[in-house]
Design a protein around this nucleic acid. Structure first.
Lengths: 291, 291
DNA sequence: CATGATCTCTGACCTAAGTCAGGCATCCCG
DNA sequence: CGGGATGCCTGACTTAGGTCAGAGATCATG
């Protein structure tokens, strides 16, 4: 790694520490120390079991206990024993606690909106932030099987269509393509997998089945910010696993010669080119893979 | 600002807090608390006057005093009264202190190199980090007059040539253009101004004079990460001021129709198009401005 | 040169955060 | 059902970080 690259990285760290440090202190704006506020925040986001809280916030058992006592005294949380295991306990927000949690959320949102509002070219800034956050957090990218009308799926599909429109010389219009029925992309006929990085959808792929031994891969997309991380390969592998579990023996897909990265992936992972098998106007290349 | 944009911003903050938080703790890796390490770092970087240290690190006078006593006891810094004002004091690193400072630097460099080394497409990551850091730190961009052979200037010029090569349909080669002599771009004949964001050069402009009442603007460049911040305008204004102070009455410049942003700037800031005044092969548009 | 302002230092004090050992209730399993 | 493991709590203690008031030295100025 060159000295210049390291200097640029460190400059980034400094700039962001300054900015994000200020963000942290906004937690102090409500007269509660950071540690307590972090617990309130984690409980509000659904991390209610104490052992999970300790792991997530990296707290000593004694310290967490004390912080929770403080929040209880303020009337913000309740703790009860976990049903099923009397040793464990769970914390929940009271009504007051919930509104306090929301006040913190609103504060953070407002702070973020303010910084973004002052930025020129906010779209470029956000794209850069997505890239940085995705790369730094690439160990924590998770795949999840969802319905194609889940918001995360819809977000990916919209981005996928926009990208096709930009990359196909003649543009792209979903209406003139074959848009698979939702029922064909959920179990037991098919599947829809999204990749989430810290909650943000950054990739997807669909398995469209007909209930038999054949199924089709559709809608493989990876966000620009997540390219180069091997995510497409991971999505494809997950979908192949899902297909096997559904009893599918042969997969097909159609593609377009403008989608060079995808084609390289198919060729590198055991797909073989076959003849055209549909009359969709956009694809010009067709592949299959036996499982 | 849309909810989606705010969510993306906050995701970025979380990701970076995690990563940079870990970076902060690397300071703790040498058995010294963060506060002390920060003081050592600031002194090592040349911030030696105590009042400046207090401002920069946002420390109470008493606390700084105590931290410095600790560093003195370790034999890492010396403090003496400032010559000229016996109330003020300055801190300097001892030889041991200097090597300890360098150990911290090496540690931070190694940490940065490690993260970068694991990243796919490090150039894209760095470009995104530059953009984020420049935009977040745009209030702290400073202009500085330097010699054209200063490293910051050289960095900008190299990037400028590379950009011309990419944007001119026929490419660009400095050798076949007129490269001004260094002496024409330093006082009293001319000037060379760079823009620095937290030490990183992100823009430049040259004033090439011949000692008389005419001078020429050359080498106006702004890094991609810094576009949209009004930096070119600021650089041009600074150069015009410098020209006035050198007694220049009329400025000229040549440009190329591929450089649309620059042309828009010239037209918006009082420049008028004139006839070709040189036989350089690259420019096809010529401007002047009376001061 | 007297006076008020400025700068640094020290001592007293405080909070947040974290560590550690031991206690107690509950669970799991032979 | 008994004994070890698990999970949580409490009390005692430590460290880092920070605030505040006042002392002492030096400076600027009328």
């Amino acid at each position: 790694m060159t000295a210049d690259a390291v200097a640029r990285f460190r400059r980034f760290s400094r700039a962001v520490t300054r900015e994000v440090g200020a963000l942290d202190e906004s937690f102090l704006g409500r007269g509660r120390p950071l540690g307590v506020a972090r617990v309130l925040n984690a409980v509000g986001r659904g991390r209610t079991d104490l052992s999970g809280l300790r792991d997530e916030l990296n707290l000593d058992s004694g310290l967490l206990s004390r912080l929770l006592r403080g929040l209880e005294a303020e009337g913000l949380v309740d703790t009860q024993v976990q049903r099923g295991d009397g040793r464990r306990r769970v914390a929940t927000l009271t009504r007051v606690g919930r509104s306090e949690f929301e006040a913190y959320e609103a504060l953070s949102d407002a702070r973020a909106a303010e910084v973004l509002g002052r930025a020129p070219r906010p779209e470029a800034l956000l794209a850069a932030m997505d890239l940085v956050a995705t790369v730094l957090g690439r160990e924590r990218i998770v795949l999840r099987t969802v319905s194609p009308d889940d918001p995360a799926a819809v977000h990916c599909l919209r981005a996928y269509y926009a990208e096709l429109a930009a990359r196909f010389s003649g543009g792209f219009d979903v209406a003139s393509s074959r848009d698979p029925a939702v029922a064909d992309m959920v179990a037991p006929r098919g599947a829809f997998v999204v990749a989430l990085s810290d909650g943000l959808p950054i990739g997807c792929v669909a398995l469209k089945g007909d209930g038999g031994a054949h199924a089709e891969i559709k809608r493989l997309w990876v966000a620009p910010s997540a390219r180069g991380l091997g995510l497409a390969r991971r999505l494809m592998a997950a979908t192949e696993d899902a297909a096997r579990e559904l009893g599918v023996a042969r997969l097909r897909l159609d593609s377009n010669s403008a989608l060079t990265e995808a084609l390289a992936l198919y060729r590198a992972t055991g797909w073989t080119e076959i003849d055209r098998f549909n009359d969709d106007p956009y694809p010009d290349l067709f592949f299959e893979k036996r499982l």
